[in-house]
Simulated scan of single mutants.
Amino acid sequence: MSNSEGQDVGGASAIRFAADGSITHAYRILDGTNRNCAGEPTPWGTWLSCEEVSRGRVYETDPRGQQSPVELPAMGRFTHEAAAVDPVRQVVYLTEDEPDGCLYRFRPSVWPDLTDGILEVLCQRDNSRSVTWKAVPDPSARRRSTRDQVPAAKRFDGGEGAWYAGGRCWFTTKGDNRVWCYDATTEQVGVIAEPATTQLHTVDSIVAAQTGELFIAEDGPEMRICSLATSGRATPFLSISGHSDSEMTGPAFSPDGTRLYFSSQRGPTGEDGNGITYEVTGPFLSRRPS
């Protein structure tokens, strides 16, 4: 899946691969939206696409292109960045790309129907890792932005990518170059990587390999993807030269975990419409992060 982060020409597309990695088809699955930035696959085979604009929306789309997209207004109207699905607790975590943004949790009324439910915001006391969740009174944000409706809401400096696995939701914040982990079992949140301890710069999208190793795309001119162990140790994994006016986007693994895909948003020209998608094969299943 690939989102289109264009103003007034957003949306999402799909590239279909055969088992050997060869491309068999490519097509659009969402049109008529704005600045679709990040997204997340669901356990039932759909794709959530998020609009990174004020009063942005989330859409549930069909990767096969057979079903029409469904708008999900109950997930709130705000500057959506990414979504991460927790099938154990039957919730969806949502990041907000604002300097004083929040982390949200959506609890559907009937799982896995995402058209109705309760939007909550993470709240945390000072000097404590423990958190609580409080309902956002008006997810439609008709009179006040969602992040300003609950006074106790914790602020995050530019929420970016998010990924759920093994009872934890990892997410990044670009304003302070941090990688966070929310432990859904203990209901605690904390920083696992920051500039003082790693060489990460302008962190953005995040994805996990089947081994638990995290891969983080950076927005900086070095055009890097870095490997991050859950212990917080970061290592440069790859970079693209000659794409200084682009962004590294959308890292994703094939279902069998042997291929990593990612894109250069604007390619070597730095202009919209010239993006390039890459595939990396390697021993991802045998890499053991330390």
Score class of each variant (00 low, 15 high):
residue 245 D to R: 15
residue 113 D to M: 03
residue 7 Q to S: 13
residue 63 P to Y: 02
residue 232 G to C: 02
residue 14 A to F: 11
residue 243 H to P: 07
residue 33 T to N: 08
residue 38 A to G: 13
residue 53 V to A: 06
residue 168 R to W: 07
residue 59 Y to K: 08
residue 210 Q to C: 09
residue 218 E to G: 09
residue 240 I to N: 13
residue 145 S to K: 09
residue 106 F to T: 05
residue 155 R to L: 02
residue 112 P to R: 00
residue 143 R to E: 15
residue 65 G to H: 00
residue 122 L to H: 01
residue 41 P to R: 15
residue 95 T to C: 06
residue 234 A to I: 07
residue 138 D to V: 05
residue 198 T to P: 05
residue 255 P to F: 09
residue 218 E to C: 12
residue 106 F to V: 03
residue 99 P to L: 06
residue 153 A to Q: 03
residue 286 S to C: 03
residue 118 I to H: 10
residue 84 A to W: 03
residue 212 G to I: 03
residue 138 D to H: 05
residue 17 F to N: 06
residue 255 P to T: 08
residue 23 I to W: 09
residue 149 Q to E: 02
residue 235 T to Q: 14
residue 282 G to Y: 02
residue 271 E to M: 12
residue 5 E to N: 14
residue 147 R to E: 09
residue 261 Y to C: 01
residue 2 S to P: 14
residue 181 C to Q: 09
residue 82 A to H: 08
residue 14 A to Y: 14
residue 93 Y to G: 10
residue 24 T to N: 13
residue 15 I to T: 15
residue 18 A to N: 11
residue 106 F to S: 01
residue 244 S to V: 14
residue 253 F to N: 07
residue 171 F to K: 10
residue 187 E to H: 07
residue 71 E to T: 10
residue 110 V to I: 13
residue 210 Q to I: 09
residue 233 R to L: 11
residue 161 G to K: 02
residue 198 T to Y: 00
residue 183 D to Y: 02
residue 71 E to A: 15
residue 285 L to V: 04
residue 61 T to L: 11
residue 118 I to D: 14
residue 190 G to H: 08
residue 290 S to Y: 13
residue 285 L to F: 05
residue 98 E to V: 12
residue 213 E to G: 13
residue 246 S to C: 10
residue 282 G to W: 02
residue 177 N to E: 12
residue 124 Q to F: 06
residue 203 V to K: 00
residue 25 H to F: 10
residue 27 Y to K: 10
residue 4 S to K: 15
residue 145 S to E: 11
residue 101 G to Q: 01
residue 65 G to Q: 05
residue 92 V to T: 04
residue 123 C to I: 08
residue 215 F to R: 07
residue 9 V to S: 13
residue 201 H to G: 08
residue 241 S to Q: 15
residue 276 I to D: 04
residue 16 R to H: 14
